[in-house]
Design a protein around this nucleic acid. Structure first.
Length: 801
RNA sequence: GCGGAUAUGGCGGAACUGGCAGACGCGCUAGACUUAGGAUCUAGUCCGAGAGGGUGCAGGUUCGAUUCCUGUUAUCCGCACCA
């Protein structure tokens, strides 16, 4: 018996060695492969085994690619500005710069325990002025390009975080961060015109090798729809109301109209009799929280007393107000066709408004319409269009309206411009100076970075102003354009500002002349594989695509999609819940590394389940991979001095092992790669006992294992007498002809029920196999044989009756 | 409400284009070695004594279904009046 594997000593030894002799080096000749992790925000609670999982997946993939001849860009950094970091600092009663630095130091230490091939020379930190100089520079460029603008409008306001939020940060009416119910607040805000990129952001999704789920979420978030705007005259008035509809074909069936309560004409349209009711309704809906407004499915509304004229048949239709119409989508007003829209149907039913059918499946009116008919069909009750296909009408109507000057074809999006300012301290200052004469003037590019001033009191004010507003010596400055006294913008950028482009900076993180040099951008980017959780499906991932497209437009980079491939790893939970400090179910990797070793934890992180699915953590399971590592270590150590020659069996086993491990790895089925190692280890142990094992087989196993368990692999490689690193090997290949056996076992079935097995020659003919099968099955066959089926290498099935 | 994912032993999970369901591991049982064992090794482990039955449930296609089709239930995720 050999001495048992001592993971502590061995891992320490190789950690030290790799520091002096890195395994991933750029020789200028190898092609690059950029494998990126979503960088963490430096949380105070450190990493748990769930974080580890993603980092292990990316490191295994990186090392595998490295052994396939690539130079790997595998950097790590810190998303250190923003609410979580600031809230943590407030809780701890320290300055965010201090807690951030401490947390980074702590997490970095934990990260080193993963033994990933991170290149710390590339490290970035979004709170470093040399980094956020470029975050601000991008903002200035966007301002100059007309993509950043100021606007006063009701925005999403989180009363607990005391700041405005982007639409993307509001989840079902609540703050994405803290879960508080979001209200509306009128604030002057900096906005980014992401809507200008809506079409490209939508259409370029096709280019990406991303999970369909994420692409779909982005497409739905952008929410493009085609339709028409149509003008309706108001009876007895000069006013017209413009509505947006995706179903202009149903115009003949419009029997009423609804405006959002916030519509600018809402009050004006109220007649004397209805005025009080209208005012009351408007007030009540303004008091409703966005959550209530979303959850109230029961339709409410009020009649204004006014009528609009249907432009096609000149019929008068009542104008109502209802909060099921959104003020900020389309024109804030809709024409309602109860016969062909579920919501209109519900409203009309409740308020006794006539329902006129204009489309039906068979061209006949449905005598008892119990729900809206929303499918295409044949036009009825529609004047000249009667009998026409509704899809055809849908296209033709807008053209006709356009000719008459009462409407036009339009496209609408659910995507809104990005509310970009935050009333908080811990963020990049927005580099704008407000001048009485010149308006908003950007800080000159050569004066960037505009550093965040040190302050004593950085807590949010809640007034809608940033804490920076209190620092008068910082706020008061001169206009860069005319020199007159002027004031700095005091809002800061959202957390997403730095993370929208950080991946560009890693490869040129010390460049003080450019965000990234042209050469390096060309050489190292874009990102080939991006690995992280699915929680950023529309936030970070949409913003990054937007930034990338903008930087492409202004010539900084020559590609317009940042991440070629995306992989979302599943979450690790414990006791049926997401790991969190408050639930007390956090499993720390630190003790596991100490007790079982880094290699064992790496492999167990993969072994818990398919990488793309959520998994439940069970501490006990790690014993399995720990035992495997010890057994494999023993196998090599026991046999290394008594190696035997290759045999038919070992050659077969070796080739199969390479084939199996490689194909599972390529399929990203990392959990089955680990079980594959265990299977082949068991087979090697058996074989070694029976007939001995050869050097090449052991070496191949060690090389295959290296990306997963780098320390023990490196150690065993050395134990077999090598002086170079195991990672200097290229990935093993296999010989196709060695994958097949001469003799194979097949299953025997009668009427589809398995009755046993038999051995046959691999190249036996169907006739021979069936003859043999009948012989074997003789006592089980009754009745007439109807059919004989032979699936080569699999089964024989005799159908008898 | 709409859309998507998932459902397999006591547990985590395998099963390629339909072809021996339960690989691999945890746990458990028995044994060996031990002063001892929560170390290690060996054997066993879907249910059932057996015929046989088994992949959430009910059907269907097929010689044959975890895999394909129809319906249905549960859990999770996303969207949520976008006209």
């Amino acid at each position: 018996m050999a001495t048992p594997y001592n993971h502590r000593e061995v891992e320490k030894k190789w950690r030290k060695h790799w520091e002096m002799h890195p395994v991933n080096v750029d020789d200028g000749k190898k092609p690059k492969y950029y494998c990126l992790d979503m960088f963490p925000y430096p949380s105070g609670s450190g990493l748990h085994v769930g974080h580890w999982r993603g980092y292990v997946i990316s490191d295994v993939w990186s090392r595998y690619k490295m052994m396939n001849g690539y130079y790997i860009i595998h950097p790590m950094g810190w998303d250190a500005f923003g609410l979580p970091a600031e809230n943590y600092a407030i809780k701890m009663g320290v300055h965010p710069s201090q807690s951030t630095a401490e947390n980074i130091a702590n997490i970095k230490k934990q990260m080193n325990e993963i033994a990933a091939i991170y290149d710390w020379d590339m490290e970035v930190n979004t709170t470093d002025p040399n980094f956020y100089k470029w975050t601000q520079w991008i903002f200035v460029k966007m301002f100059k390009a007309g993509l950043a603008y100021e606007k006063e409008m009701p925005i999403n306001w989180c009363p607990s975080c005391k700041t405005g939020l982007a639409n993307e940060e509001v989840v079902s009416g609540s703050c994405e961060r803290c879960g508080s119910s979001v209200s509306k607040k009128n604030l002057k805000q900096w906005m980014l015109r992401i809507t200008k990129y809506a079409d490209r952001l939508l259409e370029d999704l096709d280019k990406l090798e991303w999970p369909e789920k994420v692409k779909k979420m982005q497409a739905e978030w952008i929410g493009r729809s085609y339709g028409a705007e149509i003008d309706f005259c108001v009876e007895g008035s000069e006013k017209t109301i413009r509505v947006y509809t995706t179903r202009p074909d149903t115009l003949y069936g419009a029997t009423f109209m609804v405006l959002a309560p916030e519509h600018e004409l809402a009050k004006e349209l109220a007649t004397k009799e209805q005025y009080e009711a209208v005012e009351d309704y408007i007030y009540k809906s303004s008091m409703k929280s966005s959550v209530d407004r979303m959850q109230d499915k029961e339709k409410t509304g009020v009649f204004t007393g006014s009528y609009a004229v249907n432009p096609l048949n000149q019929e008068l239709i009542p104008i109502w107000l209802s909060d099921y119409v959104l003020a900020d989508y389309g024109t804030g007003a809709i024409m309602c066709v109860p016969a062909h829209d579920d919501r209109d149907f519900a409203f009309a039913t409740k308020f006794n408004i006539p329902i006129v059918q204009v489309i039906s499946k068979d061209g006949k009116e449905n005598p008892d319409l119990s729900e809206a008919y929303t499918e295409p069909g044949i036009m009825i009750n529609s004047g000249d269009w009667t009998g026409m296909d509704s899809e055809e009408a849908r296209n033709k109507v807008p053209e006709m309206l356009e000719k008459q000057g009462i409407g036009k074809k339009t496209t609408n999006y659910k995507l809104r411009d990005w509310v970009f300012s935050r009333q908080r301290y811990w963020g990049e200052p927005i580099p704008i100076i407000h001048c009485e004469h010149c308006g908003a003037v950007p800080v000159p590019e050569e004066e960037l970075p505009l550093t965040l001033p040190e302050v004593e009191k950085y807590q949010p004010t809640g007034t809608g102003e940033s804490p920076l507003a209190e620092i008068h010596e910082w706020v008061n400055t001169n206009c860069p354009q005319c020199g007159a006294p002027a004031k700095r913008e005091t809002n800061t950028m959202p957390q997403w500002a730095g993370s929208s482009w950080y991946f560009l900076r890693y490869v040129d993180n010390k460049n003080d002349k450019e965000l990234i040099s042209k050469e390096k951008a060309k050489k190292y980017l874009p990102v080939d594989m991006y690995i992280g959780g699915v929680e950023h499906a529309v936030l970070h991932l949409l913003y990054s695509r937007f930034y990338t497209k903008f930087l492409n437009d202004i010539g900084v980079i020559d590609f317009d999609e940042p991440f070629v491939k995306l992989f979302n790893q599943g979450m690790i939970g414990k006791d049926g819940a997401k790991m969190s400090k408050s639930k007390g179910n956090v499993v720390s990797p630190d003790e596991l590394v100490r007790d079982y070793g880094c290699d064992a934890l790496r492999m167990y992180e993969l072994f818990v389940g398919p990488p793309e699915l959520d998994s439940e953590w069970d501490d006990r399971g790690i014993d399995g991979v720990y035992r495997f590592i010890n057994r494999f270590y023993n196998l090599v150590m026991v046999n290394k001095d008594k190696l035997s020659k290759e045999t038919k069996e070992t050659v077969k086993l070796r080739n199969r092992m390479v084939y199996d491990i490689t194909s599972r790895l390529e399929a990203f089925s990392l959990n089955t790669v680990v079980s594959g190692f265990m299977e082949y280890n068991n087979k090697m142990v058996d074989l070694a006992k029976k007939q001995g094992i050869d050097k090449a087989t052991l070496e191949t196993a060690i090389i295959l294992l290296a990306p997963f368990a780098p320390h023990v692999s490196e150690e065993l490689w050395q134990q077999l007498g090598h002086e170079t690193s195991v990672f200097d090997n290229s990935w093993p290949t296999y010989d196709e002809s060695q994958l097949k056996d001469d003799e194979i076992e097949i299953a025997l079935q009668v009427n589809g029920k398995t009755k046993g097995t038999m051995m046959i020659e691999a190249d036996a003919t169907k006739e021979a196999v069936i003859a043999l099968a009948k012989e074997k099955l003789a006592d089980k066959l009754t009745g007439n044989i109807i059919k004989e089926i032979y699936v080569p290498g699999r089964i024989v099935n005799i159908v008898a009756r």
